[in-house]
Design a protein around this nucleic acid. Sequence first.
DNA 1: CAAAATATGTCAACATGGCTGACATAAATG
DNA 2: CATTTATGTCAGCCATGTTGACATATTTTG
Lengths: 188, 188
Amino acid sequence: MADINVSAKAPHSAPGAPAHPAPTPAPAGGAPEPFWDIIELLFFAYRDFVGDPDEVLSKLGFGRAHHRVLHFVNRNPGMKVADLLDILNITKQSLGRVLKQLVDQGYVIQKEGAADRRQRLLYVTPKGEALSLKLAGLQTQRITRAFGELGPGTHEAARRFLTAMIDGDNREGVLRLIARADRAAKPK
Amino acid sequence: MADINVSAKAPHSAPGAPAHPAPTPAPAGGAPEPFWDIIELLFFAYRDFVGDPDEVLSKLGFGRAHHRVLHFVNRNPGMKVADLLDILNITKQSLGRVLKQLVDQGYVIQKEGAADRRQRLLYVTPKGEALSLKLAGLQTQRITRAFGELGPGTHEAARRFLTAMIDGDNREGVLRLIARADRAAKPK
DNA sequence: CAAAATATGTCAACATGGCTGACATAAATG
DNA sequence: CATTTATGTCAGCCATGTTGACATATTTTG
């Protein structure tokens, strides 16, 4: 987005108008005022957030779909295909397409389950881990910059806000997933 | 995502391990530890955030692309096609497809520019405004719930965090866009 | 004024990554 | 042994992004 400079008319604007509307939507008689700022900031922030990895990925002939698969396999080594489908919320056919490419190109390997030999447990290869970390590094740079610009405690605040934005019935599962993956990470 | 319950092994986990890793990535010798929690929470939060509108849109035969167009036209009445292309960062061919459907079905109208008659200035119809507000209302419900669960000041904290996550060179433009659209909104 | 630049639209072709439906195989399970 | 489960695969469709080439109307410029 090179320069945003919309030429729409601003019909009645007090010159010294505040940069933001009322801090909280006034629950006047009708519907509450939408949180336009949060809605739009989330759009632009998320776009930039996934944009960094996208650049790297496109040079490898990969897309966002590959990123998601690689990310979650890296974070949850030994996960079942069914688990991944559940997290990504896509069909096995869609997953199959990108997973096959990642396997064929040596980023992910599948091992037969020890207990249940029908399962194909997923692991990243060193090559896959390196790419996953590279992409996470780009996103971490952005997050680090943001936290650096704002005060301390921003990490906690961001975590709480984002958690609260998740569907109530998914929230526990997501938190468990993150916590368990943190434990699964190789401890230094 | 019906139930996240990944069966990956957690190799070495202290039983009383904290729910989150170090609050700040330890800048040890090598690369800093990625902010896994923020990366994943952003993924899940954004997915749910756009999920609500998606449901409504799919019943109308529309997708996320239509939502984005309708949203920005509603927020910036009278904007030029070129402005919209700049904001959405897509090609005019991609925009043309969804825009045509929105126009044909009476959600958006195009008016010849008064000063420059080459321009096709974009406006939502009452029908378009209603849909845009309905979708924004769904997202606002989610945001309101999140802000309600957390303390006051969360709105400001979220705004600052999200703003800081935007590319430095886009940030000003985005803030200007939001501020100007707020002024353009019909003042009650 | 004629030429060039601009704003927009359109046709055609292609890529990615979703989807459904149908079917196949191997292994676990009752 | 019959059924269920975990996974894979083939075929085709859809939405939405891309490039490249042109067309048209209008404004701007030399």
